[in-house]
């Protein structure tokens, strides 16, 4: 009973801000001294196809960028962390992976900026993509290093000794065992890229409008209705991914 009440309270606590945002994005006027703004309107939502189409394109850009970065960083992180198991100095490489997170993302962006200007990548979507990737890959490496250990290596060797080619051992043995880690890495890398602001602002120099940058723009404009709409767009894939990963990773962990 106590647990059930606690769960309900947590759900209310998490859902309440979302409900408030949804409400703000679906009302128009506020007449003093009314407590609530009672003029419901879908004007801002329908504006996504017109007046606020910038939000729609920012949403699409962020989705594309976060998805591609998540896939690339997880792929690179998986193989890089596997490689680290085979070479000496693993702990040094792992310690280096923490570097972007020891300094603030903005400082990391500032460090990169000189090179990006030099190579003509500053202010371009490609430049922001590369900068974000440089920030996210070390995270994937750190996370996936927890999967690779002596036992996994022995299982791989056992598969090889039974006649499996490296790709067969990877697809039949290693990848099924790594699924929960890969799922978590995909989700976390997506989130890091999706919410990334500092590096995107610095390398994108305002020309690359991801959704996070867009939300800040509307907040600065003091337009609470559009800012609420942008914030809902910002959290929607995260809520969806969170729910999916909760179900999928939970099931996979039980299987493994």
């Amino acid at each position: 009973m106590m647990q059930k009440t606690l769960n309900t309270l947590i759900i209310i606590f998490l859902a309440l801000p979302l409900a408030a945002l949804l409400y703000l994005s679906a009302v128009k006027f506020w007449v003093y001294p009314d407590l609530l703004r009672a003029h419901f309107s879908l004007e801002f939502w329908s504006g996504l196809g017109g007046t606020y189409s910038g939000l729609t394109s920012s949403f699409a850009l962020s989705l594309l960028m976060a998805t591609s970065i998540s896939l690339t960083a997880t792929g690179l992180g998986f193989f890089f962390s596997a490689f680290l198991l085979l070479v000496p100095g693993r702990s040094t490489w792992l310690a280096l992976s923490f570097f972007p997170y020891l300094i603030a993302p903005v400082s990391f962006g500032a460090l990169l900026q000189t090179y990006f200007v030099r190579f003509g990548l500053s202010g371009s979507t490609g430049g922001v993509w590369i900068a974000q990737l440089l920030f996210v890959v070390p995270y994937a490496n750190i996370l996936l290093s927890t999967f690779w250990n002596r036992h996994i290596r022995q299982l791989y060797q056992q598969a090889i000794t039974l006649g499996a080619r490296p790709l067969q051992a990877l697809s039949g043995i290693i990848l099924p065992l790594a699924k929960p880690w890969l799922g978590l890495s995909l989700l976390q890398c997506f989130l890091i890229s999706w919410y990334e602001y500092g590096i995107t602002r610095l390398i994108g120099i305002g020309k690359v409008q991801t959704l996070t940058v867009g939300v800040m723009h509307y907040l600065n404009e003091a337009n609470p209705h559009v800012a609420a709409l942008a914030a809902i767009l910002l959290v929607s894939p995260v809520v969806l991914l969170g729910a999916i990963s909760y179900i999928v990773v939970g099931k996979l962990s039980l299987q493994v």
Partner: peptide, 19 residues
């Protein structure tokens, strides 16, 4: 290569594929 030697290595851990 080890996969083509037809030499099987068994250690004290049975190393069964857990999935």
């Amino acid at each position: 290569p080890p996969s083509q030697r037809k030499v099987v290595y068994l250690s004290q851990e049975p190393l069964l594929f857990p999935h």
